[in-house]
Design a protein around this nucleic acid. Structure first.
Lengths: 219, 219
DNA sequence: CTCCTTTTGAACTTATGGGTTCACTTTATT
DNA sequence: AATAAAGTGAACCCATAAGTTCAAAAGGAG
């Protein structure tokens, strides 16, 4: 592992945190302008760094993009995992718990970073298919996986009817994100917290109508 | 400049169909390269036309983009309306009819033109928010509206439980397109017809579980 | 044929931005 | 203080592409 601690090692002094400043700035500028319109000069300025320093840390613009995108994807993944983990104690009041989790998921999916990531992914599908595939796996993919795990438990505990948890997770996420994309016009306008909560509640309601164990079929 | 007026002067000879050739070529090239990477030279070549001719018909690259995108959106809208119209005779066998309609919708949402439109919309949200808003209204928006009309009828005829048809349509479309986006990795890989049919069937199944009128509540 | 519009090809202007070079300064460690 | 790695600013090269100009050609209408 490398030197993450403060003031250690001999070679890269406390200045190597410029690398993360550059990656942060890169994501900011790519998000603002798109890949082609983002110029390295602006990234350097936002990072508070000279242009050759950028090229010193990351060989070229393509590399800059790959690393910036993957770093952002990792951050989003961390958020996703934290939220999905809240489903663990979902036994008590299923509907309330799911509404809470749903709302938090929507918050993540609609924050600036996630939206920028989605925009960049769509825009650069042709140029960077490999990067985009990784991003997709680490964000939506991980989220769906983790959610499927939780749903599987709920099936076994008799809270949900027997079903394919992967498909259930896929559909639950679709019920959440689809309507949000519609309401926000692909993320171009803000959606109020109240409306977001309404979307979450509607998604949970429909999901539970379709997947709740029937009263006549307890366990 | 006079490009919005309908047929300037007296019949500009059979050569003015070069305009549609240019718009077609423009969409093709924008779809292939993205807005910034598409060069007017290539558009001219694909259209079988000289570069100054392009500038003669459409003032500049921005104008070219706007008209090409809106033309493509109109074409997609026409397809959408045709499919949604098939829901009119949905009374007989609700599930079968809906599965057929769902499958056709997925075909449209996943064809090359729709995918390119979606990619361009996401990519150019910042630069052309107005165009993208129009595209959204004419494609997804119209589709949701038309579908909501059909669902409202099904509520009144007692096939579906009483509900908000707009929300039901929104969720039905989400159940369709969401999983398809996941399976196709944002449209980067093809999904077999069989899998597409399975997604459609799953969406209809979940939708009907949530929205079908309960047997105990006939009308 | 003649007039008039449109098209064409090619060269040209201008602007932008990726990537590099280099001489110079900053900083931390010994 | 000495040293070496890292950072800086400015200038530079080069490729690409938007948009224009112009003289010549093509094609339909009268």
């Amino acid at each position: 592992m490398t030197d993450t601690a403060s003031t250690k090692r001999s070679a890269p002094r406390g200045r190597i945190d410029k690398r993360v400043a550059i990656l942060d700035a890169a994501f900011t500028v790519f998000a603002r302008r798109g890949y082609e319109q983002a110029c390295v000069q602006e990234i350097a300025e936002v990072a508070g760094v000279a242009k050759p320093t950028v090229y010193n840390h990351l060989s070229d613009k393509e590399n800059l993009f790959r690393h910036a995108i993957e770093a952002a994807a990792d951050a989003v993944m961390a958020d996703n995992l934290a939220v999905v983990d809240r489903m663990r104690d979902a036994g008590d009041d299923l509907r309330t718990t799911m509404e809470d989790v749903a709302y938090r998921m929507l918050r993540i999916c609609c924050d600036e970073r996630s939206r920028a990531l989605r925009r960049l992914a769509y825009a650069q599908l042709n140029r960077f298919p490999d990067v985009i595939e990784v991003v997709h796996r680490r964000t939506s993919g991980r989220l769906a996986e983790g959610l499927a795990d939780r749903l599987a438990r709920l099936c076994l505990s008799g809270h949900l009817r027997p079903c394919d948890p992967t498909q259930a997770a896929e559909q639950f996420l679709a019920l959440l994100t689809g309507p949000m994309e519609t309401r926000s016009q692909l993320g171009s306008r803000k959606v109020s917290a109240a409306e977001t909560r309404a979307v979450a509640a509607a998604a949970v309601d429909t999901f539970l109508r379709a997947y709740r164990a029937t009263p006549a079929d307890p366990s």
